[in-house]
Design a protein around this nucleic acid. Sequence first.
DNA 1: AGCTTCATGTAATCCGTTACATGATTCC
DNA 2: GGAATCATGTAACGGATTACATGAAGCT
Lengths: 200, 200
Amino acid sequence: MSLRYALLSLLTGQPKTGYEIGKAFESSVGHVWHAADSQIYPELRRMEADGLLDCTAQAKGRTTRKVYAVSAAGKRALRDWLAEPDRPVRSRDPQYLRAAYLDWTTPEAARAQFEEYVRYYTEQGELLRRTRDSLLDRSHPVLAARLERLPAEQHEAVVAFKAFAYEGMLRQAEQQVAWAREGLELVDRLERSGAYAALD
Amino acid sequence: MSLRYALLSLLTGQPKTGYEIGKAFESSVGHVWHAADSQIYPELRRMEADGLLDCTAQAKGRTTRKVYAVSAAGKRALRDWLAEPDRPVRSRDPQYLRAAYLDWTTPEAARAQFEEYVRYYTEQGELLRRTRDSLLDRSHPVLAARLERLPAEQHEAVVAFKAFAYEGMLRQAEQQVAWAREGLELVDRLERSGAYAALD
DNA sequence: AGCTTCATGTAATCCGTTACATGATTCC
DNA sequence: GGAATCATGTAACGGATTACATGAAGCT
């Protein structure tokens, strides 16, 4: 269901075509809630059928493109969802699952896992930091387009919540990097102490 | 696919019946990879069909229960999976998604969200800390049963990786609490500065 | 006699992933 | 003329959630 609200949120900024949504998604909400194009197009149709979006066909050259805008019912749905109590998601992280059983594999394989975590979350953290900064200085294009259509007194809150969400994700990523580095040390320590015994 | 490996990992500790697996799951791997009973039973059957588990029917009173044990192929599969490069999961967190758009709702609703996050992750953190500690002092029943069947020189690594995984999840939870508390402050600050304007 | 725990599932539905599919337009 | 980007999807499959379903054993 969250994809629906991610799309709704994105479109409150500005009406967009399916394709533009796909692009804007990747550089904004998509960091928070990832979705592929093949999921986005059908969902837009369903949302239109449910009356959450208004769709107007626009001729452009020979092809027609569909511009989607949030309807009044869509705004209501978004606002209801925001106020809804959030049933927290139960953890389901393949990484921690693997980490818990690394005694089953070789020190080399264990190290490779942690190295990959460090690499991935370092990169992810950089992306999140860049994005957060571009929100704070309001240079982020999707945000900038949104702000243009809003009165100045709302800008502060709009920016603050978005930057704050990225801040949270950024800290998670940084924490993951620190954790994975400790994992590498753990593997070294266990190997030095001869704790890696043969497995059956 | 991870459920399969979660079950495999759990069963390397000791053969179990479906029901025991369900129980043990809840108090161990289930913290890391949550799954409902209705998912576990069919998956066990599929794993047996795929040759990863050996299943022997045991009469118990009038009913028969099935005891599942990891086969040689199952051990191989687990080991292969542990060495496999982990394609990191793209973020998909309804919480951050909501947080990013809280300017759309009232300060009261925003506060309620953050309060709920604080509550949930505090509780979750306590559970994770208790579990980590019971792993470290080896009093955790599922772990204790596993260790009994392993030579003493392997105990250190087995315990260390499990505690380390919980440690990582614990820090995530603590970080979430700190973040949500800052969210409450943010809402207060925005409200005081009159940044909550009327929405359309 | 009634509650809890043991014991094992099925069915429907939803959500997400992967792979495939097609064609126009714009820029170089 | 060819590449990138614009533009919009379908189909098959897999995995997870929710709700439903049943019945015995053991304890109080």
